[in-house]
Design a protein around this nucleic acid. Structure first.
Length: 198
DNA sequence: GTTATGATCTCCT
DNA sequence: GGAGATCATAACG
């Protein structure tokens, strides 16, 4: 079932980030559907979070979308070449968001292969925030798109992920955030391959 | 107007 | 393991 926008209004963005593991995200671009199960997220808690674009209540043209009412996408360009997909959460003027860092492709694998220039389909096709956006065909046009719209939506397909299967740790790429860089607000689904490799 | 830099990825050695 | 790619945005002058 498609997740209702109200789901994104709950106040605890960290809980929400964890809950989104195992949910599905889809995009409809160029008449074709691509999507998969979310395996990795990070929570960004606006005003009090140094790693967030909205830290200290900073409000700019770029992060304006973070202040919107929960249930829309916040897309932006990073390092000049990678788009990031976030789900805006919480009430209006509370700039909380969840970064989607990884998915396992389940629909439109062919399409994702073409977009990413890969030959074979694997979990690795979308195991980083930049790659997720590339595989799903996400760009600035989707900034502000509702998460229950025709071109972008989130589904609960009944997958239940036990807490012990979710690895919790510090966020990635936010060393500049000082103490806040250590907050364990990254969640990722433990893969069988990872159990072996570690 | 100018400059520094980032919620990253890929390819090279 | 490390550097380069590459540009919109923000902060400064």
């Amino acid at each position: 079932m498609i997740i209702d926008k109200d789901y994104f209004l709950q106040g605890d963005v960290v809980c929400l980030a964890k809950d989104l593991i195992g949910k599905y995200v889809f995009t409809l671009r160029d008449g074709q559907i691509a999507g998969g199960m979310i395996t990795e997220t990070e929570a960004y808690r606006g005003v009090t979070d140094r790693a967030s674009h909205a830290f200290g209540g900073r409000r700019t043209k770029r992060n304006e979308m973070m202040y919107a009412r929960g249930g829309v996408a916040y897309v932006y360009l990073c390092y000049g070449m990678h788009y990031m997909l976030n789900f805006v959460t919480n009430e209006q003027d509370t700039p909380d968001a969840v970064l989607i860092r990884g998915i396992i492709p389940t629909h439109g694998e062919e399409l994702m292969l073409r977009r990413t220039g890969k030959k074979q389909c694997s979990e690795a096709i979308s195991d980083g925030p930049g790659k997720v956006c590339k595989a799903l065909g996400i760009n600035m046009e989707l900034n502000g798109t509702a998460l229950d719209s025709d071109i972008l939506w989130v589904e609960d397909r009944g997958v239940i992920v036990p807490s012990e299967k979710i690895i919790r740790g510090p966020r990635v790429g936010v060393d500049y955030a000082g103490e806040d860089a250590k907050l364990p607000w990254r969640f990722l689904l433990q893969k069988s391959s990872e159990i072996i490799s570690k």
